[in-house]
Amino acid sequence: MKIRILKPGLLSTVQDMGRKNYLSDAVPFSGVMDQLSAQIANIAVGNDPGCAVSEFTQSGASFKVEEDIVLAWSGEGAYLSSGGRHLPSGRPVFVPAGAEIYLEHNPDGFRSYVAVAGGWDAPEVLGSRSTYIPAGIGGINGRALLEDDELNSSPALSPLSRQIVESLAGEGINYPNWQIAVGAFLPVDRCTIRVIPGKEFDWFDDASKQHIFTGKIAVANNSSRMGYRLQGAKMSRVRWDEMLSTAVVPGTVQVAGDGELILLMADAQTTGGYPRIAQVASVDMPLCAQLKPGDELSFCRISLKDAERLYLKQVADLDKARTGVKQKYS
């Protein structure tokens, strides 16, 4: 299975679930920004969770199917269509060679994921296929996808993927009547981001501590896969202790020297020296990944116990979805 990029769009990269084993060398996690959507796309084509997907930013990208393909897409950065026909999300879709697929405007989100049966083939660098552009590693030559880049699927299909491919292959676009809906995994209110207080939460005055949970905060323009600048909340410190650099992770909300908030994302550096006022619950990082510059959000406080519980529940829910797909083909 093979595609060729016609238009790369705003930023398109090959990503997997991230690079976990070189944090001590200051190599960031990277990986997909929205792990939930990416996992749903992988589950829908019967892939193992570690398979590489392509991450597209907003609409505008397009690609040509060079060899018959079974793909699944998820995420709300765009709608996928081919020959004027809408391709449904969250299910395996057979698309014959020669078709062109377009990522069309979707106002609801910012990033979409395309998984192919078998996963995209790219060399593993430091245990991951994720593209980390600043160091030029992973994905396709360590860079964003460009026009005419070809992506091939890995020939090693899982038994489930093989069954899915066999059930759909034919002459024209074909998909089953079931769907894994991303909405089933998400809270109704997608603009309220749950956080636990950060280690330096008490370094800020009462007004700031209140404002972070009540004020409307907007994603600023200078936001990237590394982190979002947030506007609308200026934090005032009451403690000016020396802050020694220490580990930070995606989801860490730092307060920069000017009092503005920075939300670290997938490509975040591994250590930071700004006080950490909050930490986004992992289950809400997919919501953050779908925010675009200008979008508003607010933070809501939960306990670490709740964050842990939600984390484990989401893993279990995704396992259930995986089992559900398996059962359809057994």
Partner: peptide
């Protein structure tokens, strides 16, 4: 446990919650 990150005066320990629980 899958990684540790040492900094000036701290050590951060990374783990898979599914395995730990």
């Amino acid at each position: 446990l899958y990684q540790t990150v040492s900094a000036y005066a701290s050590l951060t320990v990374f783990f898979d919650p599914v395995i730990v629980i």
